[in-house]
Amino acid sequence: MMGKIRGKVLVIDMPQTLTKVDVGNYQTLAHQAGKVIRLGEKEIVLFKLSTGEVKAVENKSPHPKGGTLADGLVSGSYVYCPLYDWKISLNDGKVQAPDEGQVKTYEVEVEDNRILLLI
């Protein structure tokens, strides 16, 4: 039953590195808008794409002036930074040309209707 408790460490997946964290119900996660997950100090944002895939990135714009990403416009597997309109890939976190930069991405798995974040 440990596996169903939200926010608890479920499995140590790889030696000392990745941990799976249950961050919510897959079914009820809305499409096309970022959901902010706060893990202690860390802010991660989940995006459910129109394909149903869930992507997770750090909630921090790679723009030098900073800002958040959660409320940006989502198109395909990209999000547009809400403050400076940078186009950012949710697959690898890379900012699209002509701008440059990268945001940290996280692996996500969906099991039994639960969203598992690998951090």
Binding site: R6, G7, V9, Q16, T19, V21, V23, G24, T28, A30, A33, K35, V36, I37, R38, L39, G40, E41, K42, D71, I119
Partner: peptide, 18 residues
């Protein structure tokens, strides 16, 4: 509630200890 959930809610979790 749907609007509140979708746009305004942040989920809080305790810091994960590895």
């Amino acid at each position: 509630q749907q609007i509140r959930e979708k746009y305004y809610k942040t989920e809080e979790f305790p810091e994960v200890l590895v």
